[in-house]
Amino acid sequence: MIDVLSNLDRRWVFAAMFVAVGWPILSGVRFKEEPSEGVRRVFRAIEDLPEGSTVLMALDYDPSSQGELQPMASAFTRHAAERGHKIYFMTLWPAGSPMIERSLRIVEQEYPDYVYGEDYVNLGYAPGLEGAIKAVVDDLRGQFATDARGNSLDSMPLTEGLRNIQNMDLLVNVSAGDPGAKQWVQYAATPHDIAMVTGTTGVQAPSLYPYIPEQLDGVLGAIKAAAEYEQVLSVAYPKFAESVKAQEGLRRMGPQLVAHLLMIGLIVVGNVIYFVERSRGPGGRR
């Protein structure tokens, strides 16, 4: 048995992963979430702002991490719009523009009273990696000649007097890597003391904790935090509990549980093999 397992073709592991993730998706299994303090902190950062506050929504991700980050971007957008904040969208990723469009569609479809240019605006993609942050922090007009739709910034109430982002009430960032959350903390939040929360991939989340709470108000790390955020949101605003669209993260926690158990199982089995083989001594494989 041990010999069979230790020589197992890795494709069997892949197959197990397909089953572990696929089966819960097909069965639609769902679990309750108990939001952690960290997620509540992020929620409060948006919730406690007075209505009509200005929020820079920097969506720095692309399709390769949409599974983790789309639920966060959607939840942030819904929450900000629900609270009546003024939203400025932008991205540092070339493929981030279509991601912004998804959030714009949420605003258009679910908040028909929101007027483009008065309540929300899309500044679009800003090339230059961290240089783009430096530019919008110091002189936004140098970075954006117009908004993403080609409108003059002076023609819209929201951007008319906007010279830089230093006076934003909150910086909300969804980040898939560099440039992203880290650079926003370094170039914007820290030197100009702008309140900031971020939603990031699991890979990146642990590296941002040292910034909390002085330089960063909170982090949503990976899909679990997205699900918890959706949960807090649907308790505060019951209409989201009814909306299937507002529960992408919650839905994805089913496959997550089974796949995590599989991972743990694999590591345990791997170690059992290791200890058995070690107890047999060198060259002891029979």
Binding site: F18, D62, P63, S64, L266, G270
Partner: peptide
């Protein structure tokens, strides 16, 4: 973007889940 770039980019990164699983099984001792 929707039908070529998105599925390719998203799937390219998603298969890492399987490689992580296999690596953990073999090397995480």
């Amino acid at each position: 973007f929707d039908y070529l770039y998105t599925p390719l980019a998203a799937t390219m990164f998603s298969i890492l889940a399987c490689f992580v699983a296999s690596a953990a099984f073999r090397a995480f001792r």
